[in-house]
């Protein structure tokens, strides 16, 4: 009997396949394609205290095996999210993870407190590269990761996930800071800061100049960061970054992820999470593995340092 369930820092999932914030709307967009209850969990579009209109178009550019996005956290704000979007999930039995971004530590805390009763976990976004204030500003200095995590943990009733930015010299420092501050789980990676030039008009393509790179192109970087982080922290890891197939997902789990999340692949293959889930299941059946954690590479068996 194969047991697909995982426990990521107190958040119990029926399987390890999540969908990433910003790539799955507020869930309903994908409900026409398959039963959302099949998913391990849903990280909904990042929200802020006040509604945000988002960045000026263009907001997307395709790159080699990837995309650059500059959405800029467009969202209806926490109140509209609670009133208009959350009730949709009442019809489902799937964990909902609210991804929150604040301008200040207080904002993060207020949002976590308000959402505590209505979602299954909070994901702290300290890594959005597309907004000027907040977001990534908190995620690139370990003292700030520590401070914001500590403050939110105090008033957060649900498991707390900290989503890390890859745009740092050493991601393990940020991971350790989050762990020390009481994070229940960490997720990585958010998008990698990139850029595109409009050569016809001789100027940066995006109004915000830089944009976030995601998709299969970033997977080796994400995988490396998950591996490095898994060597250092004891709390569970949600691995993400360019996962498109079950093979990619297995790589992440082997590297040390306890759960994995599908992001950009949702845009071109809406069934990607289900394909990945079925692939992991048949891989386990074929290999005679009955628990997700047994997929992981046993790092004690060989010195990988």
């Amino acid at each position: 009997m194969i047991d697909m369930s995982v426990d990521i820092g107190g958040l119990k999932l029926k399987n390890p396949v999540l969908v990433s914030s910003g790539t799955f709307g507020f869930g309903r967009e994908y409900s026409d394609f398959y039963d959302l209850n099949l998913l391990g969990g849903i990280a909904v579009k990042g929200i802020t205290m006040k509604p945000r209109k988002g960045n000026k178009p263009p907001r997307i550019a395709e790159t080699a095996a990837g995309i650059l996005n500059s959405v800029g956290l467009e969202n209806p704000g926490i109140n509209n999210f609670i009133e208009q979007e959350l009730p949709f999930f009442k019809n489902y039995d799937v964990p909902v993870i609210a991804n929150i971004s604040g301008n200040t530590i207080e904002e993060y805390s207020i949002m976590a407190k308000e959402l505590g009763n209505s979602v299954d976990a909070i994901e702290l976004n300290v890594s959005c590269p597309n907004v000027k204030e907040g977001g990534i500003a908190f995620g690139t200095k370990s003292e700030l990761v520590y401070k914001v995590t500590k403050a939110v943990k105090k008033c957060c009733k649900t498991p707390l996930i900290v989503k890390l930015s890859p745009n740092v010299t050493d991601i393990t420092e940020m991971a350790l800071a989050a762990e020390k501050a009481g994070a229940d789980c960490i997720s990585l990676i958010n998008t990698i800061v990139g850029m595109k030039i409009d050569i016809e008009n001789k100027r940066p393509y995006f109004d915000n100049i830089v944009a976030g790179l995601s998709g299969p192109a970033v997977m080796p970087i994400a995988l490396r960061m998950v591996w490095q982080t898994a060597q250092k922290v004891k709390i569970p890891i949600i691995g993400m970054g360019g996962i498109s197939t079950w093979r990619d997902a297995i790589e992440f789990i082997m590297a040390g992820a306890d759960a994995i999340s599908i992001g950009t692949a949702n845009f071109y293959n809406p069934y990607a999470p289900i394909d990945v889930l079925r692939g992991i299941e048949s891989y386990m059946r074929e290999k005679g593995i009955n628990k997700i954690e047994k997929i992981k590479i046993n790092k004690g068996a060989k010195n990988y340092e």
């Binding site: 910003g22 790539t23 799955f24 709307g25 967009e29 994908y30 026409d32 579009k45 509604p51 209109k53 988002g54 178009p57 263009p58 907001r59 997307i60 550019a61 995309i67 996005n69 959405v71 467009e74 949702n266 845009f267 809406p270």
Partner: peptide, 22 residues
């Protein structure tokens, strides 16, 4: 320019005339 085509990725934004939103 479009991404998902179903309203999830929010990249195909055009200015709304009724408010300051997209």
């Amino acid at each position: 320019k479009m991404g998902c085509g179903i309203g999830a990725c929010l990249v195909c934004a055009c200015k709304s005339a009724q408010d300051d939103l997209y």
